[in-house]
Nucleic acid binder design. Structure first.
Lengths: 108, 108
DNA sequence: TAACTATATTACTATATAGTTATATATGAA
DNA sequence: TTCATATATAACTATATAGTAATATAGTTA
């Protein structure tokens, strides 16, 4: 799949997906969820910002179908929506690494 | 490179890059530039919005180092910053396709 | 010089959203 | 029921930005 094949509606969907990922706090959440399912309070601890703020970011990631949640008692657990989300993150990291490597000759 | 290896500063850089790409008009510009260098007026024609707006979007993509420009007389030509930018776009499209395929069983 | 073309910038409106504080809701325990 | 915990939502401020119209700047041509 190359970019030139995409129609306008697909470009808009990609824009929505990228927008959900285009925030450092949300990337940090994705990073925390990369390895394991976590409850909100654990995500709050790992992301270093307030609970209300994390809750809003979790809603944004959920609306973009990048994460899902399940409730267990009073605790809500979040996890990546599927392995394809991990693959998307890997692709983006690979693209970023590629840019860094080519621009500055660094190997990360 | 996997997401869990990235430090905060790298996550912020990725967020900036993704933010630059997280707009349908800018994705359309990237799509138009995918195959060839284009001048602003050609980009305006292909993107379907005003010249001032395109000019602002081009500045945003330039600031994110995703595109570069050169002047030839009164005409300014824009092109992708390098092949690694194409690869990043391909990675993102692949990630998106993967999601669509897995979610809806569609093959695109 | 003046007139014309190509692009960038400014000023504006409308909308979105990141972060914070306070509050509401849901669940569980006593 | 009351109290405590976990999470979500509302209200607010501050900031960003998409789009548009008008203007400015740069280069070209006559």
């Amino acid at each position: 799949m190359t970019i030139e094949k995409l129609n306008e509606s697909e470009l808009s969907e990609i824009a929505i997906m990228l927008k959900a990922l285009s925030d450092p706090t949300r990337l940090k959440i994705m990073q925390a969820l990369h390895e394991e399912e976590l409850c909100v309070s654990d995500i709050v601890k790992s992301a270093g910002t307030g609970q209300a703020n994390i809750s809003k970011h979790l809603q944004i990631l959920s609306r973009a179908n990048l994460i899902k949640s399940r409730r267990e008692g009073s605790t809500v657990f979040y996890s990546l929506f599927g392995s394809f989300v991990e693959q998307l993150c890997e692709s983006i990291c690979k693209g970023y690494t590629n840019i860094i490597t080519k621009k500055f000759g660094k190997i990360k």
